[in-house]
Design a binder for these strands. Sequence first.
DNA 1: TTGTAAGCGTTATCAG
DNA 2: CTGATAACGCTTACAA
Lengths: 341, 341
Amino acid sequence: VAGPRRVAGPAGRPARRVTINDVAAAAGVSRQTVTRAMNDMQGISEQTKQRVLAAAGRLSYRPSRFGRGLVKREQHTLGLVIHDLTNPYYPELASAVVGFAAKQGWNVVLADTVHTSDRQAFLAELGHQVDAVVGYLDLSPCELDAALAGLPVVEIDPGPARPRRGAVLFEMAPAIAQAVSMLTAVGVHRPVMVDILHLGEPSGRAELVASALAEHGVRLTVVGAEENTVAAGAGAVDELFAGGRTFDAVFAFNDILALGALQSCRGHRTEVPGTVRVVGIDGLSVGRYVTPRLTTLAVDMAEVARHAVDLVVGMHSGDLPWSGAKVRRRVRHQLVVRESA
Amino acid sequence: VAGPRRVAGPAGRPARRVTINDVAAAAGVSRQTVTRAMNDMQGISEQTKQRVLAAAGRLSYRPSRFGRGLVKREQHTLGLVIHDLTNPYYPELASAVVGFAAKQGWNVVLADTVHTSDRQAFLAELGHQVDAVVGYLDLSPCELDAALAGLPVVEIDPGPARPRRGAVLFEMAPAIAQAVSMLTAVGVHRPVMVDILHLGEPSGRAELVASALAEHGVRLTVVGAEENTVAAGAGAVDELFAGGRTFDAVFAFNDILALGALQSCRGHRTEVPGTVRVVGIDGLSVGRYVTPRLTTLAVDMAEVARHAVDLVVGMHSGDLPWSGAKVRRRVRHQLVVRESA
DNA sequence: TTGTAAGCGTTATCAG
DNA sequence: CTGATAACGCTTACAA
């Protein structure tokens, strides 16, 4: 395989795609014979097969996936929508989704929305390229219907509102209650939550933590991080220190922010878990590699991915409806006690 | 959008795909009119448009991407081949590749080879679904030609052999020399490398480190890690400690193994960088969040991704040849001194 | 504003 | 073993 040998126009650019007809002509056979040679089908003599293959190679011929897909109906691709591959949560999810999807013969195209301004248009565009969509959509039900009508959709952790499509729901309350019991038992009484605020409002996670603490008569202070990064998590806790506020525990919206809390404590020579206890959410594997190792509410990513892929494949095949209770699955977080709390 | 309303057979499964013809029939118009309505084209009255859209919604109609792709030739997808999304290196790469590809209007399907036994077959299959391939192929030139003939291919860090296709080459020697100078200057004379062995042989990275050290009259001991994980890196260094071997520096094949080295040192109450200095390779962002922060030879992932996408898009459009010097780019690693060395 | 005809590149069917 | 013909679902031209 030397340089490009496609039929080239004056500028050296391919004038048009090399098609099966070109190969057929070059080899002096019919299109059907080319098909037989390319796909290792029987009913073709070894000799013509080689001649065809040679011609195909010479022309750099490659069957069009569209032509082929049109007639063979067994090519499925899944759109996986995530916020930002740079946040370790999403690769862990993506890894699991890609794995399960591959097992079912589905391809996965990755849609990262980190630099997307118009989510609806973005998802509508994605919808044109795939057979089903899974992930973090963050659209209102009506936007979602507009963008992805007629397509099987499974949202992951879609928030409190009753999902209008398929969904994998997170059940964090039990694990949160467990973590809160553990902390209050050892005397925590001034906890803080580093949250991701939505329009200035505390997240659902913060509310769960607050109400679990309320059961023990403890009040939660919620502060917002600027963005979802380690640095922002550290910044939020830095401000706490700077403000002279005393606290004995930090709950974080997720492990990334918790890592920031750890970093900030280290910067302020504050012992973890001695002086301040830190608890993250998600169960990222990076939590095992930091010092101290991060205590966290972990979700089994493989289970999430398995549910999501199962649902969406079922919806696509028609075995499952496109909405309703049958296409809702629940996954429980588990308290994983390591060193930080 | 309630349940699935596709034409259903006896089992409740869709009997066949809903096509433009079904919608046309249902709305009492021609196919062309349906196209106009679906694609917001002009030359259709608002009234018929609504009628068609209603019919389409009722039938859950969605244009086939194959039919559409066959006639509109502006849909490109890139296959990104990586080893294991679970290893933070690949998400960082994927994130950048997806970003640049999106900017050029390309979709990215992610092919994770971690559970792939037959790489050649896997890539051949992938080749059928995409317009170009980028990433870590790990195939011999002849396997590669067999699997991906006729397709633009850009390998990333393909190793020492002269690449037969497009390639983004890593130039680590200068950064390695710099790191080695730094370490020998502070008295390091018993360095170890935790390597990923290929068929029992030291990697190219190990050889570069060894020869840089030789310039300073220092000999390198190479040990292999079982696999490419933090735990394996820790295990390799644990064995060093167990063997009673003394060492004052650890070079790691990559940051992941270096994290393991850090972990092992911590387990053995060995000060880093006081007693042992640790240097990783890759420049993963996780290196900034561990204690002590990891000194590493960093590659600019965005630059790698930019080159890879530029090359492959150029090759696809015909602006660039499919092999040769014009489709080779070089990226230099940079020594990033943090705390661990 | 709407419909008709043709063709995109491929494979399945059936006749030779 | 090979080739002609007819789909596959869609859009672009052009005609009404």
